[in-house]
């Protein structure tokens, strides 16, 4: 990928990827941070980034791993967690917009990721398994349980009805 191609790729995908990571992580500030950092890392590997034909998936996976790594370090340092969970200069979406995001926050991280990849990125079970490294059975279980949990938290009967169709 040349510099021009990389710039085009950035312009086309950065907004979409930030939205996806926001839903996965539940924190807009953090989503912006990890997506930017993933693009910075992708810059180093840009010559071989499109070799496997999935540069967007590479960025998404790298951003997710960065976020997981931050969670782990925050767990060790409570002060750091408090600092980064309350960013001073970036406002997140208003309370009416975060009903789903709030409900997603109550789910385990891997379940949240699987749900987002399926319902937002439109990936199939096999594609999710390929991106996350989980087995297809585990992906299906995450989707089934995640949907059931969201249905009960969002109190939406339509979601509940389809929970058993996954």
């Amino acid at each position: 990928m040349t510099v021009e191609e990389f710039e085009k790729f950035y312009a086309q995908t950065v907004t979409r990827l930030t939205g996806q990571l926001y839903v996965m992580l539940g924190d807009l500030h953090e989503a912006q941070d990890v997506v930017q950092e993933a693009f910075v890392r992708a810059w180093r590997h840009r010559r071989r980034l499109d070799r496997d034909g999935q540069p967007e998936a590479w960025i998404r996976t790298t951003a997710w791993r960065l976020a997981v790594s931050r969670w782990r370090s925050r767990r060790r340092t409570t002060e750091a967690w408090q600092r980064s969970s309350a960013p001073p200069d970036t406002e997140g979406p208003g309370p009416e917009a975060v009903v789903l995001v709030d409900a997603l926050r109550t789910l385990p991280a891997q379940q949240r990721r699987t749900m987002t990849l399926h319902y937002l990125c439109d990936l199939s079970v096999e594609q999710i398994a390929g991106e996350t490294g989980l087995s297809s059975g585990t992906v299906k279980t995450h989707l089934f349980r995640g949907r059931a949990a969201l249905a009960s938290r969002l109190k939406d009967p339509r979601i509940e009805e389809e929970a058993f169709d996954v």
Partner: peptide
């Protein structure tokens, strides 16, 4: 999901 991502 789409709505939440759009807001973000």
């Amino acid at each position: 999901f789409r709505e939440a991502a759009d807001r973000g």
